[in-house]
Computed example of a mutant assay.
Amino acid sequence: MTTTRTSTPRHYLMCSPKHFEVSYEINPWMDVTRATDTARAVRQWENLRATYLAWGHTVDLIEPIPGLPDMVYAANGATVVDGLVYSAKFTYPERAAEGPAYQKWFADQGFVTQTAAETNEGEGDILMVGDVILGGSGFRTAVAAHAELAALTGREVVTLELVDPHYYHLDTALAVIDSDPASPLIAYYPPAFSAASQAVLAARYPDAIMASASDAVALGLNAVSDGRRVVVAPGAVDLAAQLRERGFEPFGVDTSELLKGGGGAKCCTLEIRRAQP
């Protein structure tokens, strides 16, 4: 019997890729010798934004800053839990200015912000699943940031170690499909994680969707779900089939130009979670 899924309204922050290019290499997807098409990146991004708006979600925009081509990957800019903003503190100097830019945007909108003392790359490595926060480590985010976030939010933060440099952020190896605390569901690619972290995931999420290698290499796990509809990379055909079997509606949205920088739909989408009334 297929479970009936329910969409819930979401609030996102996005940043146009009008300055997008690959001018440096900080992950295995980036190749400065490979040409990028900024206009195509903008068209793909606009289509992603239009998809969210068509579904009734709210999308705010932050103005892109020249010289920060990766600013389009808004999910890396901060983490918002219960209306509290935990700033990003990037590993690589090429992206360092993005953290303060995103923090200023939130402060200007009236949010309470907390400047991170520990290295973290926002929702790239910090994902909420129900009442629990999953924290990625191994490449970009320090384990100490997980403790800092737990103290700040009062929520449990579960550390997961990433071991494959192609899946350098948690949101490239794991997707939150249903964030309902009563029935949380994730999809993930086991080889991206250490054996110990695979055991943690298996114990906590025995009903999780297991992504195939082809799903992972298409960056299919860099997906965005509203509880019923799921934006996925068109190449993630196995994942899409499994989502349908579970009662979800996968929608293929092409972000292949942005993949040249190592990001997909989720990387471009920072969720703003306000405190519940």
Rank of each mutant, 00 (worst) to 15 (best):
E118Y: 01
F248Y: 13
S16L: 01
Y86P: 01
D178P: 00
Y188H: 10
G77Q: 09
V32H: 00
L152D: 07
A39F: 10
C15L: 10
G77A: 10
A117G: 11
A195C: 00
V143I: 15
E118S: 12
I272A: 09
L201A: 05
P17L: 03
L219Y: 07
G122M: 12
G136M: 08
L221H: 12
A175E: 06
D238G: 05
P234C: 03
R49Y: 10
V59E: 00
M128H: 09
P17K: 06
T269Q: 08
A142M: 12
E118V: 04
L48N: 02
P66E: 15
H11R: 15
V80C: 12
E245L: 13
V85P: 01
T79V: 14
R5A: 06
A117I: 10
D31T: 07
A173L: 00
G247W: 00
I126T: 14
L152W: 02
L259S: 11
G263A: 08
A116N: 04
A145D: 07
A216E: 00
T255I: 09
G154A: 02
A182N: 07
L170Q: 02
T269D: 09
F106Y: 09
G261M: 01
G263E: 01
E271I: 13
G124Y: 10
P28T: 15
A97H: 10
V200C: 09
L149Q: 01
S23Q: 11
S212W: 11
V132F: 00
E148M: 08
T58Y: 00
Q198N: 15
T8C: 08
A173S: 13
M30W: 06
V230P: 08
A78H: 05
I62G: 04
I177T: 02
A96Q: 11
W45I: 03
R229Q: 14
P17N: 12
A88W: 06
R49G: 09
S7I: 04
Y12V: 13
V231T: 07
L185V: 04
G138S: 05
V132E: 11
A218Y: 01
A236G: 10
Y189E: 01
T38Q: 15
Y188V: 04
Y205L: 14
R43V: 15
G261R: 00
P191Y: 02
T255S: 13
L221I: 12
G83Y: 03
T159A: 12
I209A: 08
L61K: 02
E156L: 07
R40W: 07
